[in-house]
């Protein structure tokens, strides 16, 4: 069985909290592990912030779709926008440096998720973040 939930938010930072809440509630349906839920929420928040800053360039009224899906063995989050083409995972990710003020978001996303994919389809950026469930928690 595949469960799926989708919301569309405006590209305004004030909606980040709502998106985090949705993802947290969805993941808690499948995950008892607080650290894993926290990691997924962090990756989604950082991805949304990247869309707002880079794909939409600060335009705060564009749509961002957030789709949460679980097939029992892994949680997949898709984040879709119709802003300018922007592949966050094509950027070089320098190692953390205490003196740098920005640029840690993509490093964090890559660090906490099992798979991160980017697709450009029909004028939409699609980011797919995958976190596999621990075997003891996987559901059929």
């Amino acid at each position: 069985m595949i469960d799926e939930v989708e919301i569309t938010i405006a590209s305004h930072p004030r909606w980040l909290r709502m998106a985090r809440s949705l993802v947290e509630i969805f993941c808690r349906e499948y995950q008892g592990d607080a650290a894993t839920v926290r990691a997924i929420v962090l990756a989604v928040d950082e991805s949304l912030a990247n869309v707002m800053k880079h794909a939409y360039g600060g335009n705060q009224s564009r749509p961002i779709r957030v789709i949460c899906r679980c097939d029992g063995s892994e949680v997949t989050i898709e984040i879709c926008d119709d802003g300018r083409e922007f592949n966050p995972f094509a950027q070089a990710v320098p190692p953390p440096d205490e003196m740098r003020l920005g640029g840690r978001g993509i490093f964090l996303i890559s660090s906490v998720m099992d798979e991160c994919e980017y697709l450009r389809e029909d004028g939409w950026n699609r980011i797919r973040l995958i976190k596999r469930l621990p075997l003891s928690l996987a559901v059929s």
Partner: peptide
């Protein structure tokens, strides 16, 4: 998130310039 971390890093950098001790207290798990 990473933008909050950047704010803390900027605070730390400013504190070092001014020779002020900059401390974080009570970190939760997140």
């Amino acid at each position: 998130d990473s933008s909050g971390i950047a704010s803390l890093v900027e605070g730390l950098q400013e504190a070092r310039k001014r020779k002020v001790s900059f401390r974080l207290a009570g970190l939760n798990d997140g």
